Computed example of a mutant assay.
Amino acid sequence: MSDSNTTDFTNPSTFILLGIPGLEAAHVWISIPFSAMYAIAVLGNFTILFIVITELSLHGPMYYFLCMLAVSDLVLCTSILPKMLSIFWFNSSEIDFSACLTQMYFIHCFSVTGSGILVAMAFDRYVAICDPLRHSTILANPVVAKIGLAVVLRGGMLILPLLFLARQWPYCRTNIIPHTYCEHMAVVKLACTDIRVSSYYSLSVAILVTGLDVFFITVSYTQILRAIFSLPTKDARLKTFQTCVSHLCVILVSYIPPLFSFLTHRYGHNVPQHLHILIANMYLLGPPMLNPVIYGVSTKQIRERLLRLFTHKRT
């Protein structure tokens, strides 16, 4: 290791991503499931986008939000995997300082954006079930576009201060990041100054965004469940609830792994570092892979369009 990595210096031009410390010998093997997850995520989300765009009957608020989620998932997993594989396969661990901050911004921005899209989808289900006669009026196409724009702007604006703060800190300890990607706290911990502003702001954003989003989703589904249980017949209740199953599964997949990672990071001091890093990768790659599978299996319209697509190709 060169002296420049261990002695004092100011604002390095590159950082060194170590991958998964302690598991360097297994990097190639670890890359296999991660590559498979990424391939499924890309194929699945592009399939969702293709089906919604080409099928006129799916041109509605629920499927527009689903397309937004697919795009957000594609950007999120593409932000981390190519560089991760270059570390695992070619030992190409260097990343430019600006590229590192850009990767950090995209990861956190689209994590916040994805959470906002889930809130929008919960609101769509609430209106569709609790006020169906006004659904097309309340969630007209211009309104859906404005909601989508607001969700993206929220993610971009909330994460922007983290980028500016990270760029201004002096880095004079080391340029080695024991991670597979430029996670915010992993980067700013290398600064040789008081980083409490960054730490408190990032923690506040995480708690505020996740807390508010989960609160709004909970309120929406509380009202949805009340409306479902007030339906006169069991068949009607079951049929209405089935329209929400896919979204509920996606919510669980999107929030439980990050919560588990947060708890182990804050309180699991005896958890090995390589396990922390594996979990951090899983919660960024897992939802983009599982979301299109969940919607493809549980949503009748998408499932039928897929079947028609494959049967048409065979004939």
Rank of each mutant, 00 (worst) to 15 (best):
F97R: 15
S35K: 08
P21Y: 04
S254N: 04
R196Q: 12
S4E: 15
R125F: 09
S13L: 10
K146Y: 12
W169L: 14
P12I: 06
M185D: 11
C249I: 11
E183K: 10
H247D: 10
I80R: 02
A227H: 08
A122R: 04
Q273T: 10
F215P: 01
V205C: 00
L66I: 08
I32Y: 13
S4P: 01
C172Q: 14
K239E: 14
T264E: 11
N91H: 15
T233Y: 12
V205H: 05
S98Q: 07
Y200K: 10
A236W: 01
R314S: 13
I51D: 08
L259K: 09
S204Y: 07
G156D: 07
P292A: 04
I95P: 01
I147C: 06
V219P: 00
I207L: 14
P82N: 04
Q168G: 01
T315S: 14
A206I: 03
S261V: 10
C192M: 08
K189T: 13
L285M: 15
V143I: 06
I277P: 05
M185H: 13
P61G: 02
H247A: 03
L278H: 03
F9N: 09
I159V: 14
S13H: 14
H59E: 04
T264M: 15
F260R: 01
W169Q: 14
A236V: 06
L208W: 13
S261K: 07
Y201F: 13
T299L: 13
M157Y: 13
L307F: 14
T47Y: 14
S202R: 03
K189P: 00
A145F: 11
S298Y: 15
Q223D: 05
L160V: 02
P258A: 09
C77F: 00
C67E: 12
L153V: 13
D73G: 11
L160F: 15
S220Y: 01
L56E: 15
L66F: 06
L190T: 05
I302P: 10
S86T: 02
Y200H: 11
L259N: 03
R125H: 05
S13W: 02
N5I: 03
C192Q: 10
T210W: 00
L252E: 08
F262P: 04
G114A: 06
Q301R: 14
A191M: 11
L66N: 07
E183C: 03
H184P: 01
I207G: 00
L160Q: 07
I87G: 08
P272L: 00
S79L: 02
M104S: 13
K189Q: 15
F262R: 00
P257M: 04
T264V: 15
A280C: 11
